Simulated assay, not measured.
Amino acid sequence: MHIELATAPSAADLKTISQGIQSYNQEHLPDQLVFEPDTRFPAFARNEQGEVVGGIRANAFWNYCIIELLWLSAQTRGSGVGSRLMAAVEAHAKAQGFNYMRTETLDFQAKPFYEKLGYQVYGELADCPKGHTTYCLIKAL
């Protein structure tokens, strides 16, 4: 047995891993869940010049929509842009049939923001990254 860490894996090798977990999952889940494609989508906030000043990168599958990244430029923070972006993403996720939103945030990032929007902490990772706490949050749509 040879263990290899790949920083530039081939598409074929990545596909083998995906198909392997799908095959295993088929033993426990209905096919429509096993073979459901990821639904990746962004939401952007643009200023009057058309420049991106904030955005969300989301990925949805099964019955969850996961906020992978949320960024707001310094000039847009606290102006309601983040809440408007979240509302747009949540509305899209709900319209697509997803039941829950999930995300993670660090202790110096947006935990109070998410809680204000109805998210609840369901887990904490202490000292991750070192010296900080990662909070895992969820919200039912």
Rank of each mutant, 00 (worst) to 15 (best):
I17M: 09
N25P: 07
E48H: 08
N25L: 04
V89F: 15
R77S: 06
Y114V: 00
A11K: 12
Q19V: 07
R57A: 08
F61D: 02
I17W: 09
Y64K: 13
T133K: 14
Q19L: 15
A87H: 15
E36C: 06
Q75R: 04
Q19N: 13
E104D: 03
P129I: 08
E124L: 09
E51A: 13
D38K: 11
S10E: 02
A11I: 07
I17T: 04
T7R: 15
E51W: 13
D127L: 04
F108K: 07
G131C: 09
M1V: 03
S83E: 03
Q32F: 14
T76N: 00
P30E: 01
L14T: 00
M86T: 00
G80T: 07
G50K: 05
S10M: 03
E4C: 09
L117G: 10
P129C: 10
A45F: 08
R102C: 05
S18G: 06
W62I: 00
C65V: 14
G20M: 14
T103Y: 08
C65E: 00
F35A: 05
T16Y: 04
P112W: 04
R77I: 00
V52N: 07
A11F: 06
S83A: 13
G55C: 11
P112Q: 02
Y122N: 01
T39C: 09
D127H: 02
F61M: 13
V34L: 05
A88E: 12
S10C: 10
V121G: 04
Q32C: 11
G131N: 12
S18Q: 12
S23G: 05
Y100C: 06
T16W: 02
L117N: 13
E27Q: 03
G55H: 12
I56T: 02
V34M: 07
